[in-house]
Design a protein around this nucleic acid. Structure first.
Lengths: 153, 153
DNA sequence: TTGACATCGTTGCGCATGCAACGAAAGATC
DNA sequence: GATCTTTCGTTGCATGCGCAACGATGTCAA
């Protein structure tokens, strides 16, 4: 008889279902997928969507601004912006003051697209808020705590 | 004078800082990065870590099991398992009952590694729980709600 | 002004990823 | 039992990603 059904857990206390990084990753992935249903039909990838969202309420912005704000790699932002420009949704100009900066802004076509998509995103947001109900405030507070926390290592 | 500092937000109600899918994605990414500091030194990638964790408390499992449980693509699981086998951490056998299934299990070396890493993961978990404090229960409940929700679309 | 250093955005490169297609094996139907 | 369908795991392929290196521009100091 070989070693057979000897299921000896390495660490009995450990439960994957209660592990916060795992749960958070699962939830984030699900929400991201559901949200993507809103903008996928418009031909936007997730990085492109994020850039568009940022431009929708931040006006004219550089690549570096988006990188810091949304924690996207600058190369990711750069490529997303290049495709958005090719699609006619975003305009890239050289910053008149600082020649290194690229000033990104929505074109009329891009603004029209987001004027159509953002309300749907807000609907989804309100749907989520309704789902969470009484837990919403605590949930927001918890997320803020996690985002601002330093790892003790 | 060209169109200049006319920052007209597309949708005034929209605030990225309060948008739940965005916040959740940010928080999940941060926790995943911090957690990775625990196992990165051991040469494990994130998919490999997830497979190891699953095997640590589930005993012998097939690729399909992991795919369903951890919502990882089966190709992702397959490649992670192949590398773990090459590293001597995981053993792959053919299931004696169902020839299609691959029975994955930890080797002694793999078990020893996880016996060293899992306590550190639990420490991190407890650190997070302490950080959340009174919000912890509500946070867990909220995550469960989100994970089980159906999109109204 | 000139030269050394920093910052911004793009691009090349190696690698991981997701998707589809495939062979092998099991199950279903007759 | 023979054939058709389904399931499992692997692999090929196109694409996206992170990281480093690069050219271009700005900044600073002497």
């Amino acid at each position: 008889m070989e070693q057979d059904i000897e299921i000896k857990p390495v660490l009995p206390d450990f439960e994957l279902d209660g592990f916060l990084p795992y749960l958070l990753a699962e939830a984030a992935q699900k929400l991201s997928r559901d949200l993507a249903d809103i903008y996928r039909d418009s031909g936007l990838s997730t990085p492109q969507w994020r850039v568009m969202v940022h431009l929708s309420y931040s006006g004219r912005v550089s690549v570096r601004d988006i990188e810091r704000r949304v924690s996207m790699e600058k190369s990711k932002v750069s490529r997303a912006a290049a495709r958005l420009e090719a699609a006619g949704l975003v305009e890239k100009r050289a910053d008149p003051v600082d020649g290194r900066l690229v000033a990104l802004s929505l074109t009329d076509q891009g603004r029209a697209l987001m004027a159509r998509l953002l309300p749907r995103a807000l609907d989804y947001q309100r749907q989520l808020e309704g789902l969470l109900g009484a837990d919403l405030n605590g949930f927001r507070h918890a997320l803020a705590q996690l985002l601002n926390s330093e790892k003790t290592a």
